[in-house]
Structure formats: structure tokens, C-alpha cells
């Protein structure tokens, strides 16, 4: 009986939420996946370069501009890896609130902006390390 209720719940709620999502997408309340940008980004050569013009955002979070043609988590899935020196930082695709609150190398590629924190929550503008992004796909 428990298993029946469980699967009834899963199916019913999934159908209900799918219909709700369709309504929210039509009304523009939830951002639609940008399929054109995803396709265009796949046709280009993977990007590699240092980040510059870093600014403090909030808490442990800093921001930097990223070339707009690279598909980010806003559209679908970012393949950017943030390098601190020679080491890739852990925890890509982090929630922005978590980057601000916890830091410790969490980052997010969102639109044309990189939200990131350093591995030890120092200020990347004066900790003598170099930061680069590599599109790994």
C-alpha cells in the first residue's frame, strides 16, 4: 500500500508540476532555456583565457565578465572551469547565496558573469594568484 501511494504521489505530482511549469513558462515567470545560444556555443572553439576586472560582489563572492557567447548555467549547462593557478576550483554551478555565504572555491557561470570565491576566501585582487577560465567540453 505504501509503495502504491508513493508511486501515485510521484506520478500525480510530476504531471501537476509539469502543467504548472508550462503555465509559468508561457507567462514568463520562469526563465526559458535559451536553445539558440546553446547551439551557437557548441559550434565555437572552446574558450580559454584569464579573467580580469574583478569586483567584489557580496560576502565571499567576487564577479568578473565572461565572453557572452559561452553557454552558461542561465541557459543550460556551463562547461567553464575556473583555474586558481594550475588548480581547478571545486564546486562549479554553486548557488550564488552559497558562494557569498561559504565561498571556499564555489563558483557559478551565469549569463556573461562569473560569480566566484577563492579557495581560502582571500581577495583575488591582491592574493598574488592568477585566475583563468577554461571551457572544458
Amino acid at each position: 500500500m505504501k509503495t502504491l501511494f508513493r508511486w501515485f504521489s510521484i506520478v500525480t505530482v510530476t504531471v501537476y508540476l509539469s502543467l504548472s511549469l508550462a503555465y509559468l513558462l508561457v507567462r514568463g515567470r520562469v526563465a526559458r532555456p535559451k536553445l539558440g545560444r546553446i547551439l551557437r556555443s557548441r559550434l565555437r572553439r572552446p574558450y580559454r583565457g584569464e579573467i580580469a576586472e574583478i569586483q567584489h560582489e557580496d560576502g565571499h563572492c567576487f564577479v568578473a565578465r565572461v565572453p557572452g557567447h559561452i553557454a552558461s548555467d542561465e541557459e543550460a549547462f556551463s562547461h567553464l572551469v575556473l583555474m586558481e593557478g594550475d588548480e581547478p576550483l571545486p564546486n562549479a554551478h554553486s548557488a550564488h547565496a552559497e558562494i557569498r555565504r561559504l565561498g571556499n572555491g564555489r563558483y557559478s557561470h551565469w549569463g556573461d558573469t562569473l560569480y566566484f570565491s577563492t579557495s581560502d576566501n582571500t581577495d583575488p585582487r591582491n592574493n598574488s594568484r592568477k585566475y583563468a577560465i577554461v571551457e572544458d567540453r
Binding site: 511549469l21 509559468l24 520562469v30 548555467d73 549547462f77
Partner: peptide, 9 residues
């Protein structure tokens, strides 16, 4: 990719 899209929505 589709999971990340779901996560954003």
C-alpha cells in the same frame, strides 16, 4: 545539461 536546466526552472 537537462538537469541543470531543470534546476534553474
Amino acid at each position: 545539461a537537462f538537469v541543470t536546466a531543470c534546476q534553474r526552472m
